[in-house]
Every structure is written in structure tokens, then in C-alpha cells.
Design a protein around this nucleic acid. Structure first.
Lengths: 231, 231
DNA sequence: GCAAAAGTGTTAAAATTACACCCATGA
DNA sequence: TCATGGGTGTAATTTTAACACTTTTGC
């Protein structure tokens, strides 16, 4: 069942997912192109109704899995949007989720009837979105900007193996400000949360950078002991 | 209409409010005592269904106003709880709100049928709560502990005029750790957000402390210019 | 005069900032 | 050999942390 098939609703719950990715030096989100009214042909956040027999978190995971075939991604509840008039066809309260995924790791699935296709769009340069999805995105982006400074979630957006410059660029793009290279490296390495690999970049026309992995196990242990990551 | 009057529900929205206050050196929350099943005689967070024609924020404000006759208090959305089985009589998705109020400023209103009375309870020493309200409270308490360090919301819990020791005690209670008096004063005064009044404590059997007011106007201006409060 | 909380500065240690050059690689 | 990004250290400044005694007031 799809929201648009319904006549005037009493009230319904949906979930909408703000799925961030990082690719070609830009922060992107996953949007679908709507095939039906209202907001036909607009871009929108992927979302769906919450089934009677599933928890809200499950519904959000389901939406994401249908799109990407990925489980096991970083996901958290963002905020609930429920203004009386946010949906033109009746009251739909939507719980927005916030997700970070590794773009390269998967391809996008073909979609059901209500959406033509899913695509990665640069956050910096978006057309108007359907419903109040612009508002939801803004809230999500602020959350990302805040959270990345005091939780090591940036790694969720990078490949398993990454260079320090990639990591720095990610922070610069998200925080929208330049960062000093030497100070950044000193700080990020001082946490002892990066594993230096015996491997380097390949096929780059300059000195190849070392690759690193994030040590999640160690982070979880340190966190239990009161350690706090803070950039 | 009240949740408990309903037969098996399809799905409904409610709001629940975690209302913090600070009194007699303790952090407290406002709880009601339930007069009806389920969870008869348990303490619970004040809450109610969201009407079809009101926004969620409005519903939360309504619940709080019915209890305290106070508008114009600090309130923000906390988190949405919607597990299938969180309510024994059917699916109720609840949007939890988080509120800070000045305890002394008002008295509690008499309540409608479903609750016997409202009371302030010390957070440190609570009996089991109805539904999943324990979980909601824990989330709210963590939010308060985090937020108080980087936003000047502590003042919402104190009287208009307060002493630096009261402010320090508030931080100590919420953060659950002792703070050095001299360092605390230096830091908090360095923001230039406190107005020193020409007034002192009365009727204390020790040296009377100066009273201060929080300069909200100045904070709002500074915030616009990128200033960030951080304890 | 005594109990109880108010008020007040300094010093050492740690964290942050600013800043510039040589290195390795592929084209 | 040149263009491109990789990689590295130090010094000045700012921030934080630790710490103890005198003052005022009511009883």
C-alpha cells in the first residue's frame, strides 16, 4: 500500500530516511523521484508507512534495505514531523531517520511503482523536494554536522580502507570549513583508533598515501571506559 | 477521550512529557499517579493523545499547560517510542517531549479523571513507572546531561535571580560530579552572560551571596554571531 | 565567637593554533 | 622534469586543572 493510494486518511505513521553518502568529494543523499501525485516528478526522501506489526526502527530498516540491499548500516532516529498540514491528503505523522552508508559498497535496487528511480544527489545543490522533506533534510544535516565532531561516525561514510586526506576532506565538506592538515593528523592519530595498513593507494599520479582502517572494537572498549572522541 | 477508554486500537499517537524541575538541591520530574488500568496506581509521565487538528508540539504544550498553567517554558521534542507492544491495549506511538521549568513559579493544577494527582519526584529515587516510561525518562536524562554542557539551558531550571553556588550545584547534580568552585565561577562569568544584580540573598545564616540574572538577549545576539556556550 | 557558605589568584600542565618545506609517484 | 598531493615538527598562545585561605552573616 502506498500513501497516495489512500483516500482522506484519519492519521497514519510513516518513516522517511535521510541516507547520507560521500562520493567524489561531495556529501550526497539518496532521493527517489516520485511517479505519482502529489508532488509527481519531485525528488523525495525514501519512505513508507509503518506496518501495524512492526516497530518503527524496523520500518526504517526495511525502507533502506529495499533501496540498497544493505543491512548493518549506521542508522538512528532523527525527529518526528507531524504538522497537521504536512501531507496534502490527510494527516501523516512521519518519523525521520538518519543513516550513513558507504556509497561504493552497493548498487541501488530497482523500485516499486510509486517511485521511478533512486539516485544520489549532492546535498549542496538540490532542487525543491516533495512535502516537508527540505525541512527534514536540514534537520538531518545539522545533526550530522554536530555529531561528527564528538562521535566517530565519519568512518561510516568512507570505504573500509581510506587515507587520512580522504578523512580530512570528509570533515571539511561536512563542517564546511578548512582544517589544517598537520593538526588534523596529529589529533586524529592521537586517539589510537586508526590501524595503519601495510598498503598504499594505487594508480595515483602522485606519492601514494598510506591506507588506514578504523578500529571499531577498540573504540567500543574505550567508550565503555568513559573515553570520549572529540575532534 | 483517554487512552484507557479505548478498546483494541488500530494505532494512535500520543505525546508524553518529561518535565524537569530543580528544587531543594535535587533534580525532579513531574509525574502523575494513574487512577485506571493498565498500570493503575503507578506513576507515569503526563501525556495524552494528539488531536486530529493539532500539531504534535501543540499537543505537548497542551498537556503541560493543563498540569501547570504555564506557557512559555523551555520545551523540545525528545524521541519517538513506537514499539508494537509498548502499550498493552494496542499500538500507541508516542512522541516524547522534554521540558525544563522553574518549580517555584507555579502550583500544580487539579487533574482530570484518569490521574489522581501530579507530584514532583526526585529523579535519583523513583519507583517503577508505567508503560515504557522508565526508558523515556532515561533518554531524557541523558539528553539533559549532554545538552547542559553546550547550551545555557540550566537557567530554565533556576529562579530568575540565583546565586553562583545554586548554579554550580545544579550542574553538579545533573552531571553527577563535583566541580571546582573557583574554576566554575571563572568560566561561567567569562561568557559575559550573567548580570550581577544589586541584591543579595536574604535570611541566610552565613555571608549572603550576590544574585545574578541570565542575560538571554545577549545570548541570543552572540549566538547569531557564532558564539558557542560550552562549560 | 563559631558555624556555614561566599568570595577570591596563581601556577603548572595540557591542548590548540599557526605555519613551510621536502618526498614519492605517474604522466 | 614537472605537477600533484603525501607527509612531517616546532614554538607561541590559550585553556584547563589543581589548590587554600579570608570574609561576611546569623545565631
Amino acid at each position: 500500500m502506498e500513501i497516495n493510494d489512500l483516500p482522506k486518511l484519519h492519521s497514519d505513521f510513516s518513516v522517511d530516511c535521510v541516507v547520507f553518502g560521500f562520493d567524489k568529494g561531495e556529501l550526497r543523499i539518496l532521493l527517489i523521484e516520485r511517479a505519482e501525485e502529489p508532488f509527481k516528478d519531485y525528488l523525495a526522501l525514501p519512505g513508507n508507512l509503518v506496518y501495524d506489526n512492526e516497530n518503527i526502527d524496523q520500518a526504517a530498516n526495511r525502507v533502506l534495505t529495499e533501496l540498497t540491499s544493505l543491512n548493518d548500516v549506521y542508522m538512528e532516529q532523527l525527529y518526528t514531523f507531524g504538522d497537521v498540514n504536512r501531507h496534502p491528503q490527510g494527516r501523516v505523522i512521519t518519523v525521520a531517520y538518519f543513516s550513513l552508508i558507504k556509497v561504493k559498497k552497493h548498487t541501488l535496487n530497482p523500485l516499486s511503482t510509486y517511485a521511478k528511480k533512486a539516485q544520489w544527489c549532492a546535498v549542496a545543490d538540490l532542487p525543491p523536494l516533495a512535502f516537508d522533506h527540505q525541512l527534514i533534510l536540514e534537520k538531518a544535516y545539522k545533526r550530522l554536522q554536530n555529531k561528527i565532531r564528538y562521535q566517530p561516525i565519519g568512518f561510516e561514510l568512507l570505504p573500509e580502507k581510506f587515507t587520512l586526506s580522504q578523512l580530512q576532506q570528509l570533515y571539511e565538506v561536512i563542517l564546511e570549513k578548512p582544517i589544517d592538515k598537520r593538526n588534523f593528523r596529529k589529533k586524529i592519530l592521537s586517539f589510537g583508533l586508526l590501524i595503519e595498513l601495510d598498503e598504499k593507494q594505487k594508480n595515483v599520479s602522485h606519492r601514494a598515501a598510506k591506507l588506514y582502517k578504523f578500529n571499531k572494537t577498540r573504540y567500543n572498549n574505550l567508550k565503555k571506559m568513559g573515553f570520549s572522541f572529540e575532534l
